[in-house]
Amino acid sequence: MKVTLNRVNDAFHFKLKNERGHVVDVDSRAEFGGSDLGASPMELVLMGVAGCSAIDMISILKKQRQEITSFNAEVEGERVKVGEATPFKEINVVFYLEGDINPEKAQRAAQLSFEKYCSVSKTIEPTATINYKVVLNNTELEKVN
């Protein structure tokens, strides 16, 4: 896996491209000297958690023949000062699913994603706590033990 970065302006706007040609804009917010023309690197980390776990969950639920009519997620990260850096201390993920989906299967799909499959979460796990919950058809599900 490889990505390339090219600077776009004289501040912090970059275009990053993967080997398949997909481009992502990265920038810093204006208050930090950027032009706010793209997501920040730390926002991309949260997006990575959301995307990775969503792919896992949808894949698991499709294999179980669950009918997903809507799938959304919200991811929030809490950062903490460590020297000059501010890494994530805690990440909270909420999945919103709708459809004819067995609640136990939905909750188990989330559990499997974070405990076994999601490489992004596994990369972050040593330094940040990742919490998740599943809301199915407007009802928050209980955790599976």
Rank of each mutant, 00 (worst) to 15 (best):
L5V: 11
R7M: 06
N9I: 04
D10Y: 13
F12A: 09
K15I: 06
N18E: 00
E19Y: 03
R20Y: 15
G21P: 11
V23N: 00
D25Y: 03
D25M: 00
D27P: 14
S28G: 09
A30T: 15
E31W: 12
F32W: 10
F32D: 11
G33W: 03
G33R: 07
S35G: 09
D36Y: 07
D36R: 14
L37C: 02
G38A: 01
G38V: 09
A39C: 12
M42L: 15
V45H: 00
V45W: 01
M47V: 07
G48Y: 03
G48I: 06
V49S: 09
V49M: 04
A50V: 05
C52E: 07
S53T: 15
S59H: 04
I60C: 02
K62N: 15
K62A: 11
K62P: 00
K63I: 08
K63C: 06
Q64S: 09
R65W: 04
T69Y: 08
S70R: 14
A73S: 15
V75W: 08
E76G: 08
G77S: 11
E78L: 12
E78N: 12
E78I: 15
V80R: 10
V80S: 08
G83K: 10
G83H: 05
A85G: 04
K89C: 12
K89M: 13
E90V: 11
E90H: 14
N92K: 15
V93L: 12
V94Q: 13
Y96V: 11
Y96A: 03
L97V: 10
D100T: 11
D100R: 14
N102T: 07
